[in-house]
């Protein structure tokens, strides 16, 4: 699979269409993000399957935002899965990345990963490697929805009680780009004790994921307390779709349907 990506990237670099390609590289037995700039040196490029599919993914779009800010005139390529493509579209829509300056190179996720992610679309619109897997529905959400609301609340309180306030969920999130974060505001949240103020800390983050979370699941993977954050944000995405007929990253790039919050039109 990675050979097809390499071929594509090599052509993009040689033709001068991109200045560099942001992908993954294995070095010293570890996988990490890497900006490939030399078509002749794509040694070590991997797609992030170390022990099982997708176990070594990174928020490449988040890194891309940083690179793009340093080199605003250059075009960069980036490896995308289905979720990353949704992320790119949403970031284009909120002017965090310029679609003119990004070339995506897509891969389709294997069924095993699509199942584990309960992914609604485990492949980007265009991809150079992989076979499209079948979509999966949100069973984890359905299971919780079947519970009485009081019991559901107890489940979440217990999950959040393990939080060590490491901010890993926010720091890994490819959609978290605000300069000032409510989670660090003393006016909203208590500081200095563990667990993080329960349930306000996690509910605050969940609300901020509305219209933003593209369901990549990195928050869930990185959480040292195994809090099922992905399930929480999947539910948020369901509510947003129900109320506003919008699910981040599924429309055309740069578009967002007209909807109103507190009477204000967000679409200018």
């Amino acid at each position: 699979m990675v050979e097809k990506i390499k071929t594509e990237v090599q052509q993009l670099l040689i033709s001068g269409k991109i200045k560099g390609f942001l992908g993954l590289r294995e070095q010293h037995g570890q996988v990490g993000p890497y900006l490939f700039t030399d078509a002749q040196d794509l040694e070590g490029m991997v797609i992030g399957d170390r022990l099982k599919p997708g176990d070594s993914r990174y928020p490449l779009n988040k890194q891309l935002m940083r690179i793009a800010r340093c080199y605003p005139d250059e075009v960069f390529g980036v490896m995308v899965r289905g979720c990353d493509e949704r992320g790119l579209r949403t970031l284009f829509g909120s002017n965090q990345l310029n679609p003119e300056k990004v070339v995506s190179v897509g891969i389709a996720c294997p069924q095993e990963l699509a199942d584990a992610c309960e992914c609604l679309k485990p492949f980007p619109d265009e991809f150079v490697a992989g076979e499209p897997a079948e979509a999966r529905s949100f069973q984890t959400v359905a299971k919780l929805d079947a519970m009485e609301i009081e019991d559901r609340f107890k489940v979440w309180l217990a999950e959040f009680s393990r939080c060590i306030k490491c901010y890993g969920c926010r720091n890994i999130c490819p959609m978290c780009y605000c300069k000032d974060c409510t989670l660090e505001s003393r006016d909203f949240l208590a500081i200095g004790s563990l667990p993080a103020e329960n349930p306000i800390f996690h509910l605050t983050r969940a609300i901020h994921m509305a219209g933003r979370c593209i369901d990549c699941g990195l928050c869930n993977e990185v959480c040292p307390a195994d809090i099922p954050l992905r399930t929480l944000y999947k539910k948020i995405a369901d509510i947003v779709e129900e109320e506003f007929h919008y699910r981040p990253g599924y429309g055309e790039a740069g578009t967002r349907p007209s909807f109103k919050i507190l009477g204000e039109d967000l679409q200018h």
Binding site: R162, I164, C166, L194, P224, A225, D226
Partner: peptide, 17 residues
């Protein structure tokens, strides 16, 4: 453990699960 060795705490959480 959760304050001083949080990644050891992760394993305790999983054992509990």
């Amino acid at each position: 453990t959760t304050s001083s060795h949080p990644l050891v705490a992760t394993r305790i959480f999983r054992a509990k699960e």
